[in-house]
Simulated assay, not measured.
Amino acid sequence: MTEISKKTIPVLVSGALGKMGREVVNSVLNASDCELVAAIDINKKNNGENISQLLNLKSSEIFVSNDLEGTLCSISQNYRNQEINPVLVDFTHPDSVFENTRSAIAYGISPIIGTTGLSPSQINDLSIFAQKAEVGCAIIPNFSVGMVLLQQAASVAAKFYDNIELIEMHHNQKADSPSGTCIKTAEMIEEYPKQYNEGLVKETESLKGVRGGVRDSGLNIHSIRLPGLLAHQVVMMGSPGETYTIRHDTIDRKAYMPGVLQAIRKIGKFNSLIYGLEKLIF
């Protein structure tokens, strides 16, 4: 931990040794208005090692810890009654993200969650908990500004198209399907309430699931997992005589960092749960 500063935002990074965690640590270390105060990761082999030396990043005096609960408690005490509350950025695993988020809120630390896989009921529980605790919390399925623009465009176009299918493509180390980003896109499309993809014929599948997953609205979602991919999404809309396709491709995780920093800077203005980057940048 570093000396407390009233001018910078204290940031804890959970999942600090992962691919996204590394980018977040690097961005925080290089942001003049942020201060890295903790790096947490379950990799016990690197427990106690200097995060900057481990990742070959800008020099800092922060050491990796395996103890999320203990770190949250310590940081909470160190920054008690300070003008700026600490922020936890979490890029871990769907199995642990719910408890991580609850723990951060309980200690008065604002969680910014990039890990996907939370169920609607879990998000609702966290929303109630954050509101009672009066702690700002952001669940962000995708930190890319380009993806936010895709989602905005898709939600507007939904008024004009009754047939819409979504395809999301990710690397084969992604644990959850469909992606939280794709679910969020579907939800934004469904804000224009109607039934999508009403069949003209009775469909049959000789291979189960070949038409993808179907939401209650009728939207079809297809998930692809392959090495060589990072994060990609296509929204295809069709009507007689035309198709309208919106596509977003992430080719480097650096694309997410402006959104991460925006969330870190803005979350202190809220005392409840925010779902989606658009709530913070528009």
Rank of each mutant, 00 (worst) to 15 (best):
Leu150Asp: 08
Lys174Thr: 11
Gln152Glu: 11
Gln195Tyr: 04
Gln131Phe: 07
Thr115Ser: 13
Val135Ser: 03
Thr101Ile: 01
Phe98Thr: 00
Asp162Lys: 13
Leu166Phe: 08
Ile109Phe: 03
Glu99Ser: 12
Val156Ser: 06
Ala104Ile: 04
Arg102Gln: 12
Tyr192Asn: 15
Leu149Ala: 14
Asp125Ala: 14
Glu187Ile: 06
Gly180Ser: 05
Tyr196Arg: 06
Arg102Lys: 15
Ala154Gly: 10
Cys137Asp: 01
Thr101Leu: 00
Asp125Ser: 12
Met169Phe: 00
Ala104His: 03
Thr116Ser: 11
Thr181Ile: 02
Gln151Leu: 07
Thr185Asn: 08
Ser103Glu: 10
Gln151Ile: 14
Phe129Thr: 00
Ser103Trp: 00
Asn197Cys: 09
Tyr107Ser: 08
Ile164Val: 13
Ile139Leu: 14
Thr181Val: 08
Ile123Gln: 14
Thr101Asp: 02
Val145Gln: 11
Tyr161Ile: 06
Gly180Glu: 04
Asp125Cys: 04
Lys184Pro: 00
Ala138Val: 02
Pro178Ala: 09
Arg102Gly: 01
Ala130Val: 00
Gln173Arg: 14
Asn197His: 11
Gln195Met: 09
Gly114Val: 01
Ile140Arg: 07
Glu190Met: 13
Ser144Leu: 06
Ala157Leu: 15
Lys174Cys: 08
Thr185Pro: 02
Val97Gln: 08
Ser119Ala: 10
His170Ala: 02
Ile123Leu: 15
Ala154Lys: 05
Ser103Pro: 00
Ala106Ser: 15
Ile140Asn: 07
Pro193Arg: 11
Glu165Ser: 14
Asp176His: 13
Gly199Thr: 13
Ala157Asn: 09
His171Arg: 13
Ser119Trp: 05
Gly199Asn: 14
Ala158Lys: 06
Thr101Asn: 01
Thr116Gly: 12
Tyr192Ala: 04
Gln131Gly: 11
Ala106Phe: 03
Gly180Asp: 07
Pro111Leu: 03
Ile113Ala: 02
Ile123Arg: 14
Lys174Phe: 06
Ala154Ser: 14
Met188Cys: 06
Cys182Gly: 03
Ser110Thr: 05
Gly199Arg: 12
Glu168Pro: 02
Ile113Lys: 01
Val148Thr: 15
Met147Ile: 13
Val156Cys: 05
Val148Gln: 10
Gln122Trp: 02
Ile183Gln: 12
His170Ile: 05
Glu191Val: 02
Lys159Ile: 04
Val145Asp: 07
Gly117Leu: 07
Gly117Ala: 03
Lys132Gly: 01
Lys194Met: 10
His170Leu: 04
Thr181Leu: 07
Thr185Gln: 03
Tyr192Val: 12
Ser96Thr: 12
Ala175Leu: 13
Ala175His: 10
Cys182Asn: 06
Lys194Ser: 08
Val156Gln: 13
Asn124Lys: 12
Ile105Val: 14
Ile109Ala: 03
Ala186Asn: 04
Lys132Glu: 15
Arg102Thr: 03
Lys159Ser: 07
Phe143Leu: 13
Lys194Cys: 14
Thr116Cys: 10
Ile139Arg: 11
Ser155Cys: 10
